[in-house]
Protein backbone atom coordinates (compact mmCIF):
# COMPACT_ATOMS: atom_id res chain seq x y z
CA UNK A 1 0.00 0.00 0.00
CA UNK A 2 2.87 2.32 0.86
CA UNK A 3 4.40 1.52 -2.44
CA UNK A 4 1.22 2.47 -4.18
CA UNK A 5 0.99 5.78 -2.32
CA UNK A 6 4.62 6.50 -3.11
CA UNK A 7 3.98 5.80 -6.77
CA UNK A 8 0.88 7.88 -6.68
CA UNK A 9 2.67 10.82 -5.11
CA UNK A 10 5.58 10.81 -7.50
CA UNK A 11 3.14 10.36 -10.36
CA UNK A 12 1.19 13.31 -9.09
CA UNK A 13 4.36 15.40 -8.90
CA UNK A 14 5.47 14.64 -12.41
CA UNK A 15 1.95 14.89 -13.67
CA UNK A 16 1.52 18.35 -12.23
CA UNK A 17 4.72 19.54 -13.91
CA UNK A 18 3.62 18.12 -17.23
CA UNK A 19 0.32 19.87 -16.65
CA UNK A 20 2.20 23.17 -16.52
CA UNK A 21 3.76 22.45 -19.89
CA UNK A 22 0.53 21.03 -21.27
CA UNK A 23 -1.25 24.28 -20.44
CA UNK A 24 0.99 26.05 -22.95
CA UNK A 25 -0.05 23.66 -25.69
CA UNK A 26 -3.67 23.96 -24.74
CA UNK A 27 -3.73 27.73 -24.63
CA UNK A 28 -2.01 28.12 -27.98
CA UNK A 29 -4.17 25.45 -29.56
CA UNK A 30 -7.25 27.12 -28.21
CA UNK A 31 -6.31 30.51 -29.58
CA UNK A 32 -4.78 29.82 -32.99
CA UNK A 33 -5.51 26.13 -33.51
CA UNK A 34 -1.88 25.18 -33.87
CA UNK A 35 0.12 22.45 -32.17
CA UNK A 36 3.08 24.47 -31.04
CA UNK A 37 5.83 21.95 -31.61
CA UNK A 38 8.40 24.43 -30.34
CA UNK A 39 6.77 24.53 -26.93
CA UNK A 40 8.87 21.65 -25.59
CA UNK A 41 11.93 23.62 -26.65
CA UNK A 42 10.70 26.70 -24.80
CA UNK A 43 10.47 24.56 -21.72
CA UNK A 44 13.99 23.28 -22.34
CA UNK A 45 15.27 26.84 -22.74
CA UNK A 46 13.58 27.74 -19.47
CA UNK A 47 15.36 24.87 -17.77
CA UNK A 48 18.68 25.85 -19.34
CA UNK A 49 18.35 29.51 -18.43
CA UNK A 50 17.55 28.66 -14.84
CA UNK A 51 20.47 26.22 -14.83
CA UNK A 52 22.89 28.88 -16.07
CA UNK A 53 21.63 31.58 -13.74
CA UNK A 54 21.52 29.27 -10.72
CA UNK A 55 24.99 27.91 -11.35
CA UNK A 56 26.50 31.34 -11.91
CA UNK A 57 24.89 32.67 -8.74
CA UNK A 58 25.98 29.69 -6.70
CA UNK A 59 29.53 30.05 -7.99
CA UNK A 60 29.50 33.67 -6.87
CA UNK A 61 28.18 32.49 -3.52
CA UNK A 62 24.64 33.86 -3.32
CA UNK A 63 22.25 32.40 -0.71
CA UNK A 64 19.93 29.59 -1.82
CA UNK A 65 16.71 31.56 -1.49
CA UNK A 66 18.02 34.33 -3.75
CA UNK A 67 19.22 31.77 -6.27
CA UNK A 68 15.81 30.09 -6.45
CA UNK A 69 13.96 33.35 -6.91
CA UNK A 70 16.34 34.88 -9.45
CA UNK A 71 16.66 31.65 -11.44
CA UNK A 72 12.88 31.26 -11.54
CA UNK A 73 12.29 34.84 -12.62
CA UNK A 74 15.07 34.72 -15.22
CA UNK A 75 13.75 31.48 -16.65
CA UNK A 76 10.24 32.90 -16.90
CA UNK A 77 11.46 36.14 -18.52
CA UNK A 78 13.65 34.51 -21.12
CA UNK A 79 11.26 31.70 -21.92
CA UNK A 80 8.51 34.24 -22.46
CA UNK A 81 10.82 36.26 -24.66
CA UNK A 82 11.59 33.17 -26.71
CA UNK A 83 7.93 32.21 -26.93
CA UNK A 84 7.03 35.72 -28.05
CA UNK A 85 9.80 35.78 -30.65
CA UNK A 86 8.98 32.33 -31.99
CA UNK A 87 5.39 33.40 -32.51
CA UNK A 88 6.39 36.61 -34.26
CA UNK A 89 8.88 34.91 -36.57
CA UNK A 90 7.43 31.53 -37.32
CA UNK A 91 3.66 31.74 -36.87
CA UNK A 92 2.48 35.29 -37.37
CA UNK A 93 3.40 35.56 -41.07
CA UNK A 94 1.53 32.28 -41.61
CA UNK A 95 -1.80 33.21 -40.03
CA UNK A 96 -3.61 32.84 -43.32
CA UNK A 97 -1.44 30.16 -44.89
CA UNK A 98 -2.63 26.61 -45.57
CA UNK A 99 -2.97 24.31 -42.59
CA UNK A 100 0.31 22.47 -42.97
CA UNK A 101 2.49 25.57 -43.26
CA UNK A 102 2.54 26.73 -39.61
CA UNK A 103 2.87 23.14 -38.47
CA UNK A 104 6.00 22.58 -40.55
CA UNK A 105 7.30 25.95 -39.47
CA UNK A 106 6.76 24.90 -35.86
CA UNK A 107 8.72 21.69 -36.39
CA UNK A 108 11.47 23.75 -37.99
CA UNK A 109 11.51 26.06 -34.98
CA UNK A 110 11.76 23.09 -32.66
CA UNK A 111 14.76 21.69 -34.53
CA UNK A 112 16.32 25.13 -34.77
CA UNK A 113 16.02 25.89 -31.05
CA UNK A 114 17.27 22.47 -30.04
CA UNK A 115 20.39 22.78 -32.14
CA UNK A 116 20.88 26.38 -31.16
CA UNK A 117 21.14 25.33 -27.52
CA UNK A 118 23.29 22.37 -28.51
CA UNK A 119 25.74 24.65 -30.32
CA UNK A 120 25.62 27.55 -27.89
CA UNK A 121 26.01 25.34 -24.84
CA UNK A 122 26.81 21.66 -24.93
CA UNK A 123 25.46 18.28 -25.87
CA UNK A 124 26.41 16.72 -22.52
CA UNK A 125 24.10 16.14 -19.63
CA UNK A 126 24.64 18.85 -17.04
CA UNK A 127 24.06 18.45 -13.31
CA UNK A 128 21.33 20.78 -12.16
CA UNK A 129 22.02 22.39 -8.79
CA UNK A 130 19.77 21.23 -6.00
CA UNK A 131 17.43 24.13 -5.39
CA UNK A 132 14.96 22.48 -3.04
CA UNK A 133 16.51 21.30 0.23
CA UNK A 134 15.18 18.42 2.31
CA UNK A 135 13.01 20.01 4.96
CA UNK A 136 13.43 18.73 8.49
CA UNK A 137 9.71 18.68 9.25
CA UNK A 138 9.17 16.33 6.32
CA UNK A 139 11.29 13.63 7.96
CA UNK A 140 8.43 11.33 9.17
CA UNK A 141 6.87 10.94 5.73
CA UNK A 142 10.02 11.34 3.66
CA UNK A 143 9.88 7.71 2.51
CA UNK A 144 6.52 8.38 0.87
CA UNK A 145 6.77 11.89 -0.39
CA UNK A 146 9.91 14.03 -0.64
CA UNK A 147 10.27 17.71 0.06
CA UNK A 148 10.70 18.57 -3.57
CA UNK A 149 7.44 16.79 -4.38
CA UNK A 150 5.63 18.97 -1.88
CA UNK A 151 7.21 22.13 -3.22
CA UNK A 152 6.36 21.18 -6.78
CA UNK A 153 2.77 20.37 -5.90
CA UNK A 154 2.37 23.63 -4.02
CA UNK A 155 3.95 25.68 -6.79
CA UNK A 156 1.87 24.15 -9.55
CA UNK A 157 -1.28 24.57 -7.51
CA UNK A 158 -0.54 28.25 -6.91
CA UNK A 159 0.40 28.84 -10.54
CA UNK A 160 -2.72 27.13 -11.81
CA UNK A 161 -4.95 29.06 -9.45
CA UNK A 162 -3.30 32.25 -10.66
CA UNK A 163 -3.85 31.22 -14.26
CA UNK A 164 -7.48 30.38 -13.62
CA UNK A 165 -7.92 33.79 -12.02
CA UNK A 166 -6.20 35.46 -14.95
CA UNK A 167 -8.35 33.76 -17.53
CA UNK A 168 -11.63 34.03 -15.68
CA UNK A 169 -11.50 37.50 -14.24
CA UNK A 170 -9.03 39.79 -15.98
CA UNK A 171 -9.45 41.84 -19.13
CA UNK A 172 -6.81 39.98 -21.07
CA UNK A 173 -8.28 36.67 -19.93
CA UNK A 174 -11.66 37.66 -21.27
CA UNK A 175 -10.06 38.78 -24.52
CA UNK A 176 -8.30 35.43 -24.76
CA UNK A 177 -11.50 33.50 -24.28
CA UNK A 178 -13.22 35.62 -26.88
CA UNK A 179 -10.39 35.12 -29.37
CA UNK A 180 -10.41 31.39 -28.77
CA UNK A 181 -14.10 31.22 -29.59
CA UNK A 182 -14.09 33.32 -32.73
CA UNK A 183 -11.06 35.24 -33.86
CA UNK A 184 -12.80 37.27 -36.54
CA UNK A 185 -15.56 38.29 -34.20
CA UNK A 186 -13.08 39.25 -31.49
CA UNK A 187 -11.30 41.40 -34.06
CA UNK A 188 -14.56 43.05 -35.01
CA UNK A 189 -15.46 44.01 -31.46
CA UNK A 190 -12.13 45.73 -31.09
CA UNK A 191 -9.90 43.18 -29.40
CA UNK A 192 -6.29 43.47 -30.45
CA UNK A 193 -5.97 39.85 -31.54
CA UNK A 194 -2.25 40.08 -32.23
CA UNK A 195 -1.68 41.20 -28.69
CA UNK A 196 -3.88 38.46 -27.29
CA UNK A 197 -1.95 35.85 -29.24
CA UNK A 198 1.35 37.29 -28.05
CA UNK A 199 0.07 37.28 -24.48
CA UNK A 200 -0.95 33.65 -24.85
CA UNK A 201 2.50 32.68 -26.00
CA UNK A 202 4.13 34.68 -23.22
CA UNK A 203 1.97 33.18 -20.49
CA UNK A 204 2.29 29.67 -21.88
CA UNK A 205 6.06 30.05 -22.12
CA UNK A 206 6.36 31.37 -18.58
CA UNK A 207 4.41 28.35 -17.34
CA UNK A 208 6.71 26.07 -19.31
CA UNK A 209 9.74 27.81 -17.80
CA UNK A 210 8.47 27.22 -14.27
CA UNK A 211 7.84 23.62 -15.26
CA UNK A 212 11.35 23.46 -16.66
CA UNK A 213 12.89 24.75 -13.47
CA UNK A 214 10.88 22.37 -11.31
CA UNK A 215 11.46 19.26 -13.35
CA UNK A 216 15.16 19.96 -13.82
CA UNK A 217 15.70 20.38 -10.10
CA UNK A 218 13.55 17.30 -9.47
CA UNK A 219 15.48 15.06 -11.84
CA UNK A 220 18.80 16.74 -11.23
CA UNK A 221 20.18 16.92 -14.75
CA UNK A 222 19.37 18.54 -18.08
CA UNK A 223 20.48 18.51 -21.67
CA UNK A 224 19.38 20.07 -24.92
CA UNK A 225 17.07 17.20 -25.92
CA UNK A 226 14.77 17.13 -22.88
CA UNK A 227 12.24 19.39 -24.57
CA UNK A 228 11.27 16.90 -27.21
CA UNK A 229 10.17 14.03 -24.97
CA UNK A 230 8.66 16.32 -22.36
CA UNK A 231 6.80 18.05 -25.15
CA UNK A 232 5.31 14.79 -26.41
CA UNK A 233 4.29 13.73 -22.91
CA UNK A 234 2.78 17.10 -22.15
CA UNK A 235 0.96 17.10 -25.44
CA UNK A 236 -0.44 13.68 -24.67
CA UNK A 237 -1.63 15.08 -21.36
CA UNK A 238 -3.18 18.01 -23.16
CA UNK A 239 -5.04 15.68 -25.49
CA UNK A 240 -6.17 13.40 -22.65
CA UNK A 241 -7.45 16.37 -20.71
CA UNK A 242 -9.15 17.74 -23.76
CA UNK A 243 -7.96 20.81 -25.54
CA UNK A 244 -9.81 23.33 -23.40
CA UNK A 245 -8.57 25.70 -20.76
CA UNK A 246 -9.23 24.01 -17.47
CA UNK A 247 -9.21 20.56 -18.98
CA UNK A 248 -5.52 19.88 -18.99
CA UNK A 249 -5.27 20.48 -15.25
CA UNK A 250 -8.09 18.09 -14.45
CA UNK A 251 -6.99 15.44 -16.88
CA UNK A 252 -3.52 15.34 -15.53
CA UNK A 253 -3.58 13.90 -11.97
CA UNK A 254 -5.06 10.68 -13.33
CA UNK A 255 -2.62 10.29 -16.15
CA UNK A 256 0.38 11.05 -13.96
CA UNK A 257 0.37 7.84 -11.96
CA UNK A 258 -0.69 5.93 -15.04
CA UNK A 259 2.33 7.06 -16.90
CA UNK A 260 4.47 6.26 -13.92
CA UNK A 261 3.06 2.75 -13.82
CA UNK A 262 3.78 2.29 -17.46
CA UNK A 263 7.32 3.48 -16.91
CA UNK A 264 7.84 1.00 -14.14
CA UNK A 265 6.36 -1.85 -16.12
CA UNK A 266 8.37 -0.86 -19.11
CA UNK A 267 11.72 -0.90 -17.37
CA UNK A 268 11.22 -4.08 -15.37
Amino acid sequence: MDYFIELFCSGLTRGSIYALIALGYTMVYGIIGLINFAHGEIYMIGAFTSFIVATVLSIYGFPLAAIVVVAGVAAAIWSSAYGYTVEKIAYKPLRHAPRLAPLISAIGMSILLQNYVLLAQTSDFLPFPELIPEFAFMEPIAHIIGSSDIVILLTTTVVMLALTFLIKFTRIGKAMRATAQDRTMALLVGINVDRVISATFIIGSALAAIGGLLIASHIGQINFAIGFIAGIKAFTAAVLGGIVYSGSCSGEPDSGPDRKFCHRLYFQ
Binding site: P98, A101, P102, G108, S110, L112, L118
Partner: peptide, 20 residues
Protein backbone atom coordinates in the same frame (compact mmCIF):
# COMPACT_ATOMS: atom_id res chain seq x y z
CA UNK B 1 28.51 19.93 -40.55
CA UNK B 2 27.64 20.63 -36.92
CA UNK B 3 25.42 23.45 -38.10
CA UNK B 4 23.55 21.03 -40.33
CA UNK B 5 20.55 20.43 -38.13
CA UNK B 6 20.42 24.10 -37.20
CA UNK B 7 20.26 24.86 -40.89
CA UNK B 8 17.50 22.28 -41.39
CA UNK B 9 15.37 23.97 -38.80
CA UNK B 10 16.06 27.40 -40.22
CA UNK B 11 15.32 26.21 -43.74
CA UNK B 12 11.98 24.74 -42.71
CA UNK B 13 10.92 27.98 -41.06
CA UNK B 14 12.32 30.25 -43.75
CA UNK B 15 10.76 28.25 -46.57
CA UNK B 16 7.35 28.43 -44.94
CA UNK B 17 7.66 32.19 -44.45
CA UNK B 18 9.27 33.24 -47.71
CA UNK B 19 8.42 30.61 -50.26
CA UNK B 20 5.76 28.22 -49.00
Amino acid sequence: SEYRMLAFGAILVAMMIFKP
